[in-house]
Amino acid sequence: MEPGFQAIVDCMIEAGWTRGEVMRSLRRLIAADNMTHKGNAKVEAELAIARAMIRAGKAT
């Protein structure tokens, strides 16, 4: 496990979280991270298209 995640899990367990609560929270964190990556990829693709259009002289 990544050291950062391990530190988070350790703190959650010290705070009295159950294993199930920890796992649910980690799944949500991973899902949010995946959604962020997907959103960033979409924006990067849109920017690449816009830059290509500007270079081609077809900017609107």
Score class of each variant (00 low, 15 high):
residue 25 S to H: 03
residue 12 M to W: 09
residue 39 G to A: 11
residue 21 E to F: 01
residue 6 Q to T: 06
residue 32 A to P: 00
residue 40 N to P: 03
residue 26 L to F: 03
residue 34 N to G: 15
residue 47 L to T: 14
residue 6 Q to F: 06
residue 6 Q to Y: 10
residue 50 A to T: 03
residue 20 G to I: 11
residue 57 G to M: 02
residue 17 W to M: 15
residue 59 A to M: 07
residue 57 G to N: 02
residue 55 R to Q: 09
residue 53 M to C: 10
residue 60 T to I: 07
residue 4 G to D: 09
residue 11 C to D: 14
residue 6 Q to P: 02
residue 9 V to T: 04
residue 17 W to L: 13
residue 45 A to I: 02
residue 39 G to R: 06
residue 22 V to I: 09
residue 43 V to L: 14
residue 4 G to V: 06
residue 21 E to V: 02
residue 13 I to Y: 10
residue 20 G to N: 10
residue 37 H to W: 11
residue 56 A to P: 01
residue 10 D to F: 08
residue 34 N to L: 15
residue 44 E to N: 15
residue 44 E to K: 15
residue 35 M to Q: 15
residue 46 E to W: 05
residue 14 E to P: 04
residue 28 R to E: 13
residue 57 G to S: 02
residue 7 A to P: 06
residue 58 K to A: 07
residue 56 A to K: 01
residue 7 A to F: 08
residue 10 D to C: 06
residue 36 T to E: 13
residue 46 E to N: 07
residue 4 G to K: 10
residue 9 V to F: 04
residue 28 R to C: 05
residue 44 E to L: 15
residue 17 W to Y: 08
residue 59 A to P: 01
residue 41 A to I: 01
residue 9 V to H: 05
residue 45 A to H: 13
residue 15 A to V: 04
residue 17 W to R: 10
residue 6 Q to K: 11
residue 10 D to E: 11
residue 53 M to H: 10
residue 15 A to C: 08
residue 18 T to V: 09
residue 3 P to A: 03
residue 53 M to S: 13
residue 58 K to L: 14
